[in-house]
Write a protein that binds this DNA or RNA. Structure first.
Lengths: 143, 143
DNA sequence: CTCTAATTCAACCATGTAGTTGAATATAGA
DNA sequence: TCTATATTCAACTACATGGTTGAATTAGAG
């Protein structure tokens, strides 16, 4: 897990994964978009491999890499633990409730000039589905 | 994003987030489970803060930390890009198909697969629903 | 005001990371 | 066989990380 998140913490490596999502790539193909030596790219690839995120097949003199997504699923599931903190619009409300528990009185008076007046709808916190928000561009560069 | 994944790449910090999922924690409370100096724990906390994963409120002489989940959602969504590689039982089949496309003949003969387009492209975001992800225990240790 | 608790700061050390360059290895192809 | 291509290896530099210790800062409490 450490290895996986560490591998993901570098934009070069994330871009390489993006590239691999489009199919198999050789080392030089993976390295081509980046302004660095092949040796440097090779190290990045090794980091990805070490994290179990890619698999390498040596075909003659070229090394063909392919995405190995399972560790990403593990990371994804780890993050899903926290989905209740963002995937209902209740995050703010939940916060309020947490404070409420410590301060049982008050809060009954309307319009307390507080931020948000969100409707407490469908209290289904679970499901861990990615929020309807946009798929984070993912185009070309990776912010 | 670099910061977020980097913050997540350390088990100490992941455990701290786990702790924060249970509510607000002071610096010493966060540090307590770990066999390291307070100064070291403080640095970890600063890393989490720098990644935007926690918010700190100074209450008197204690610093109270709370989880800030939005960046986790971003990371989650980034990973969701790749869900198509694991969240159908088709991952293996998909794999086979990819090879099939290059080897229109029979899969029985060891054919010389040709590499495909060399331009890195981004994956299709697709549905990005978690397979059946259960919130990975979250008990005590973090594998 | 003084003592103590909560936390950071500064300096330091060992190790890891990301990059470089140049040489080594191995294979495809003329 | 000779040569060009694909890739790694080794050595080196610069800087980040994760940890230490001891002193500094700030605020609650007597």
């Amino acid at each position: 897990m450490d290895q996986v998140f560490h591998a993901l913490s570098d934009a070069t490596r994330r871009n390489m994964l993006n590239s691999l999502a489009g199919g198999e790539r050789t080392v030089s193909q993976l390295a081509e978009p980046f302004a660095m030596s092949l040796a440097a790219a090779s190290k990045h690839i090794k980091a990805l491999e070490h994290a179990g995120l890619i698999r390498r097949e040596v075909r003659g003199r070229t090394h063909v890499c392919r995405l190995e997504a399972r560790p990403l699923a593990t990371a994804y599931q780890w993050l899903a633990q926290y989905s209740r903190f963002w995937n209902s619009r209740l995050d703010v409300l939940e916060q309020l409730l947490r404070e409420e528990r410590k301060t049982p009185a008050a809060r009954t008076t309307p319009a307390p000039a507080k931020p948000e007046s969100s409707k407490p709808e469908s209290p289904k916190p679970e499901s861990s589905r990615p929020t309807s928000s946009r798929p984070t561009s993912s185009e070309g560069e990776d912010q």
